[in-house]
Structure formats: structure tokens, C-alpha cells
Design a protein around this nucleic acid. Structure first.
Length: 713
DNA sequence: GATCCCCCCT
């Protein structure tokens, strides 16, 4: 009877009961185990009812099965209730019941209660065995922050109880010390053996743990030498060994060694059928920048899961290939692979990079359906995605929906407000962040200083710049200096900006020099500062047209036309070409891309007619072409300006975007001064909000005819 | 009768 019941399940047990047959604890236990293994709650609950009916609710062995079933179905409160129904004398005679209860808490994010339960168990006089220790040590590892030192005490308990030689216990001890950050103690476990031998040659699990610990701690080279040592000592590699090895090679960027390990994986037969190893290979190649090999491994994998796709997708994203990444993401969904929170966050950050608002909204909706928006990393990606698409209100809503905010959440919105020209709100949020106890980091201060600079708050900017290292322990980097130069430059304090550049211990990078040139462009080149910045940029990024254009424009700004022409000639002589400017706009989920004077769009004729109308109407409102921004100083300069890519994109927006909707345009270069002036008037004359995200910042052109950047960028 | 180690993200 028992064997039949074990092989079948709830239905048959029910039938047997109805026929008046008595169930025994083995039949119930077997059926419960099946539910536990498959995490199936409903049949488990039906079995619970049968346990009651057949009078086994006081049996420690049967209740152990119930507790295990509930905890594996993530119903820890039910597990506790079942546990409490066993009377103490029964309970304390059964070490398994305690073990599953400890494991249940550890598995369900309650490691501290798991450890406390282990203590209760010992107080009750129950002796732990070789099964109990791995469970409680896992809990100690998870509770390392809340209850430091408790793992060490349990280690003492292991030694006294004589289970220190058990392979499971030993590897759990290694893992516990690794998770507590004491890699030396972990290493010591592997070096010593109870039986006096030297080193734990048979315990590959422990070696894998230690290696993974080195990788997680950013100590890739030590992880690799551990792998070499493992081989020397004859420790068997298993399917868990290779992912850590590949991970450390990825971190070290050693694609050649990666290829060698790939070979030995193939030779050892681990190349097929181990999806984790395939994933680690894809990730290794992708992180080393070899996308071709990553694709090759991916294409030959016998089966792929969401991690395989994620490795490839983030590999593309890391190289800025957002479109390719999003294409893969859509392909993944088309093949029926469900998103998890990691790939959702990754896809959203690709949407932010392009940006692709419509697809981002789809991913958002899909994440809500799957409950992935509850993960803080998805929430953070949503904030960033909306902010980078210029939808700052939606970014705010995404921020408000996150219940447990981390430093990245705060930073995402602080930076978002700053970039979107809402400096005051950005700074208010920063103060709330500090009050909440979250620790601002390097990126937070980029946002804060960016906000000060765009709001023109010199005093506050200087205060934050000084406080970041003194109060928050964050050393300022080039981005922070660039913001300060921007702030001082915006206020016309070019000599104060120049002073900053000469601070001891600081080496300005290209971004800082570009900020200097941008300030010179607005206020005119003075005292050789523009020349100094341009020279530094010519050296740092030869072939980049931006410094030539900025320098020429800064001469033009102070009326030095001849010098401006000289710079343009120099640029041509050196063969430096302006990177082609692109603008794109998304209407109804479709992306339209334009280059200057582009006639490739199917509705080009209408678009050009709209541009003509646009220029006429803003001309009536006072627009005059700013010919200094034209590349060719010819008679057609005004026409050249009128056909800049951002003007074409806006014209299309006026034609086909639903009335009242903001027109959003994205640009790979900085917006030119003529377009900036023109779009301010377009927004005013047509009563339409226009948002341009360019390479430097956002420009929200409001209906009042002013821009959020304060005419400085 | 239950227990340990791996891949993608922040």
C-alpha cells in the first residue's frame, strides 16, 4: 500500500481515506516530499488536511514533512504554525523537525530567527547532527551583518560535537567564513584536517566557495591562483568550479586565458548540458569585449535560460550597442523566455541609453505584470529611464513607488532632476536623502553639483564641493571639477574657474577642458584660457571636431571673426571632420532619425514645408539666424541652419505628434546655438513643449519661450 | 528524514 501511495499522490490518498483505509506516516511523508521538491502549495495544503483527518498532527516526523513543504513554498508563517502544534516531548525527540524549521527560516530571509531557533533547540537539550550544522551555518552566513560572531560560536559547537570531519559541514564552514568576509579563516578550514592530513583534497565544494569569495571580493588574481592550486593538489573540478574561474578571468579581462579554459571545459565534457557554464562563457567573452565569441558560444548552447540572454544583452549594452541589446531582448521574449528582474533592469537601462520611451513603457508594464517592479534595481532603472527620456514627472512617480530606497534610487532622481533643469528640486531631494540616512556616493555629487551649476548657485555649489570629501568621504573626480568649472563659467567667473584647474593633485580631463571651452564660448575667450583648453583637447582627443568648433565659437563670441575662421581652416587642414549630427524622435512607438539636410524620410516634402512655415512664424516673433553656427560661411548659411537635424525632427513632431504632447528629440551632439534660439521661439509660437536631450544635458523649451538650461550648456 | 558551492543586475 505504501509504495503505491508514494508513487502517486494526493488523489489516491484521498481515495484510500474515503474507502476507510488507514494512511500511515510513510505514505503521507512521501507525498509531502513530492510537493516540497516541486514547490506545489495546493496539493500540500490538501495533504495537511489529510494529516489532521488521519490523526498524525501530533507526529513529529509527519509535521517535519509539513514544515518542509510550507517553507519550500515560501509560507514560513504556516510552517511555524505547524511546528508549534507538536507537543514539546515529541518535538525534542526529533532532530529533523528542528532542522527543517531552522532551514525554513534561513531559506525565507529570516536568518537571525533561524540562528535563534538553533539556540532554542540546544537549550531544549536536542543534539545537532551533520544535517543541522550546514543549515545553521548557512543562516549564520546570511546573518553575518545582523549578528556578527555567531558563526564563530557555531564553529566552536561543531568542533565540540565531533562533526568537524563531515564534508558537508566543512564546506558550510568555508562558505560561512567567506560570506563573513574572513577569507583567511575560510582558507584555514581547507588547509587543516581533523585526521591530521594536510589539506582538504576531496572537498571541491569548499574550494569553490573560497574561489567565489575571492571573485566577489574583487580579488580575481587570488581566485585564479586558487584554481591553479586546486589543480596542483588534485582537487576534482566540478560544474561549479568553472563559472568562478571564468568570472575571475572576465574581471581580469584575460580573454586569452579564457579561451584556454574554454578548451579544457570542452575536453572535460562540461561544455554540454551545463547551462551555468555556458552562461559564464558567454559572460566572460562579452565582458572581455569579444562579442563575436560570446555570440558563438550562445548560438551553440543546447539550451538557454534568461541568464544566457542577459549575459549577451548586457554585453552589447556595455559597448553602447543599445539597439542590438534591445533587439536581443525582444527576441528573447519572442522565444518564450520569461524576464527576470535582472534582464528587466538591463533592458530598461538600454531604453534609457537610446532613449526608447515607448519600449521602456512596455518593459515597465511587463515588469508590473510579473511583479518585477518590486525589485529595487528595476525601480531604479525605471527612474533613470524616465528621467533620461525627459519625463521627469514619471521618473518621480517611479521613485515614489519604490518602498525600500537605496543610495542608487536617490541618486537616480537627484541626477534626473539636475539634468532636466530642476536644480532646486534636485538639491531638496539631496537633503532628504542625507536626512534619511542613505550615504551619498560619487555619482550623487555629480548630480548635486550639476544642479548647483544649472541653478547658478555658487555658494551652495562650493559648500557641497568642499563637504563631499570632508563630511562624506568621497574624493572629487574630474566630473565634479567639470561641474564646478561649469558653475563658475556660467557666472562669468572664468579666472576663478582657471584657479580650480591648477589645484595641486588634480589633472583635468577632456570633460573638464570642454566645460572650460563652453564657458569661453558664452563669455568670450579671455586671457589665453580658451587656447589652453583647446590645446589640451587637441592632444587628448585628436580627430574630435568639438574643441575646434567650441574654440571657433568662443572667438566669434568676442567678435574675433578672423581668428574664428583661422580655427576652422586649421580643422580642415588637419583633416578633422565634424561627426555627423543625428537627431531622432519617437512618435507612437516609431523612431524617426534625421541628419542635417536629410531628405530620406518618406514625408520629406511635408517636413520641409513645415520647416519653412516654422522659420517664417518664428521670424515674425523676432528670430534672426545666428550665422556663426553655420559650417560654411556662404550665402546659403541661413538655409543650412534651417535644415539642421533637430529642426527637421521638431517639424515632424509638429506634423504628426498628437496635439498637446511634448515633442521629444534626442541628439548625439550638442544642440547648436541657432537651433537653441529657434526652438525657444517654436515652443512659444506653437504653444508646444519641446524637450531636447543632447550630448551635454536636457533642454526643456517651455511655452513661455525659455529653456531649462538657462542658455548655458 | 534534511544539509554545502555556480551564471546575468544594483
Amino acid at each position: 500500500m505504501c509504495s503505491v501511495a508514494r508513487a502517486t499522490g494526493v488523489g489516491v490518498l484521498q481515495l484510500m481515506m474515503n474507502r476507510g483505509l488507514r494512511l500511515d506516516q510513510y505514505a503521507l511523508g512521501g507525498a509531502l516530499r513530492e510537493c516540497s521538491a516541486q514547490h506545489r502549495l495546493l496539493p500540500g495544503q490538501q495533504l495537511h488536511a489529510l494529516v489532521y483527518k488521519s490523526g498524525f498532527d501530533g507526529s513529529a516526523a509527519v509535521v517535519a514533512g509539513l514544515v518542509d513543504m510550507y517553507s519550500k513554498c515560501r509560507m514560513v508563517a504556516e510552517a511555524v504554525r505547524a511546528f508549534a502544534t507538536v507537543p514539546p516531548p515529541e518535538r525534542d525527540g526529533n532532530c529533523v523537525l528542528w532542522a527543517v524549521m531552522v532551514a525554513g527560516h534561513a531559506r525565507n530571509g529570516e536568518p537571525v530567527r533561524a540562528v535563534r531557533l538553533f539556540c532554542d533547540m540546544r537549550s531544549a537539550g536536542v543534539s545537532p547532527n551533520q544535517f543541522t550544522f550546514p543549515t545553521v551555518l548557512t543562516a549564520c552566513a546570511a546573518a553575518a551583518e545582523a549578528a556578527p560572531g555567531v558563526g564563530f560560536q557555531v564553529h566552536g559547537c561543531v568542533v565540540r560535537s565531533g562533526f568537524g570531519g563531515n564534508a558537508f559541514v566543512r564546506s558550510s564552514l568555508v562558505e560561512m567564513y567567506v560570506k563573513c568576509g574572513d577569507l583567511t579563516a575560510a582558507r584555514k578550514i581547507l588547509e587543516t584536517r581533523e585526521d591530521g592530513g594536510s589539506g582538504d583534497g576531496g572537498n571541491e565544494v569548499g574550494w569553490n566557495s573560497l574561489m567565489a569569495g575571492f571573485v566577489r571580493g574583487g580579488r580575481a588574481n587570488e581566485a585564479l591562483s586558487l584554481f591553479v592550486e586546486m589543480r596542483r593538489r588534485g582537487v576534482d573540478e566540478d560544474e561549479f568550479t568553472y563559472p568562478s574561474v571564468l568570472n575571475s578571468l572576465a574581471a581580469a579581462g584575460s580573454v586569452a586565458e579564457g579561451g584556454a579554459v574554454h578548451c579544457s571545459i570542452v575536453k572535460s565534457g562540461f561544455g554540454e548540458g551545463y547551462v551555468h557554464i555556458g552562461n559564464a562563457l558567454v559572460d566572460m567573452y562579452a565582458k572581455c569585449g569579444d562579442l563575436e565569441s560570446a555570440h558563438g558560444v550562445f548560438d551553440h548552447m543546447p539550451s538557454r535560460d534568461v541568464v544566457s540572454w542577459t549575459s549577451l544583452i548586457t554585453g552589447c549594452a556595455r559597448r553602447g550597442l543599445y539597439e542590438a541589446a534591445l533587439h536581443l531582448f525582444c527576441e528573447m521574449r519572442a522565444t518564450g523566455v520569461e524576464s527576470d528582474y535582472v534582464v528587466a533592469a538591463g533592458a530598461l537601462s538600454c531604453c534609457a541609453g537610446l532613449p526608447a520611451l515607448a519600449l521602456g513603457e512596455q518593459v515597465h508594464a511587463g515588469s508590473v505584470r510579473r511583479g518585477l517592479d518590486a525589485f529595487v534595481s528595476v525601480g531604479n532603472a525605471l527612474v533613470t529611464m524616465y528621467a533620461k527620456a525627459g519625463c521627469i514627472e514619471e521618473a518621480r512617480q517611479a521613485f515614489d513607488a519604490i518602498s525600500h530606497r537605496d543610495a542608487i534610487t536617490w541618486t537616480a532622481l537627484i541626477v534626473g532632476y539636475a539634468q532636466n533643469g530642476r536644480g532646486r528640486e534636485s538639491l531638496r531631494l539631496y537633503h532628504r536623502m542625507v536626512e534619511s540616512g542613505a550615504r551619498p556616493d560619487y555619482v550623487t555629487f555629480i548630480g548635486v553639483l550639476f544642479a548647483c551649476s544649472h541653478a547658478g548657485l555658487e555658494e551652495e555649489g562650493r559648500r557641497h564641493f568642499d563637504s563631499m570629501e570632508r563630511t562624506h568621504g568621497v574624493a572629487p573626480g574630474p566630473e565634479h571639477y567639470a561641474c564646478m568649472v561649469d558653475l563658475l563659467g556660467r557666472l562669468g567667473k572664468l579666472s576663478a574657474a582657471a584657479e580650480l584647474l591648477d589645484r595641486p593633485g588634480f589633472a583635468p580631463d577632456a570633460a573638464v577642458w570642454k566645460a572650460v571651452l563652453a564657458a569661453c564660448r558664452v563669455h568670450g575667450a579671455t586671457a589665453g584660457l580658451a587656447e589652453r583648453a583647446a590645446e589640451a583637447l587637441f592632444r587628448a582627443c585628436p580627430g574630435d571636431a568639438a574643441p575646434y568648433m567650441l574654440l571657433a565659437n568662443s572667438y566669434a563670441a568676442s567678435g574675433r571673426w578672423e581668428e574664428a575662421r583661422r580655427v576652422r581652416r586649421l580643422m580642415r587642414r588637419r583633416g578633422v571632420r565634424k561627426e555627423p549630427g543625428w537627431s531622432w524622435t519617437e512618435v507612437g512607438g516609431e523612431v524617426h532619425a534625421f541628419r542635417a539636410a536629410d531628405r530620406g524620410h518618406p514625408r520629406a516634402a511635408e517636413i520641409y514645408a513645415k520647416v519653412e512655415e516654422m522659420m517664417e512664424r518664428i521670424g515674425e516673433a523676432g528670430y534672426r539666424a545666428d550665422l556663426g553656427w553655420a559650417l560654411h560661411q556662404t550665402a546659403d548659411a541661413a538655409v543650412e541652419l534651417a535644415h539642421h537635424s533637430e529642426k527637421l525632427a521638431v517639424a515632424l513632431g509638429l506634423l504628426i505628434a498628437p496635439p498637446g504632447m511634448p515633442i521629444r528629440v534626442f541628439k548625439n551632439l550638442r544642440i547648436c546655438g541657432d537651433c537653441h534660439q529657434a526652438l525657444k521661439l517654436v515652443a512659444k509660437v506653437y504653444g508646444r513643449v519641446v524637450v531636447v536631450r543632447d550630448a551635454a544635458c536636457f533642454h526643456h523649451f517651455g511655452r513661455e519661450g525659455i529653456c531649462s538650461c538657462g542658455d548655458f550648456w
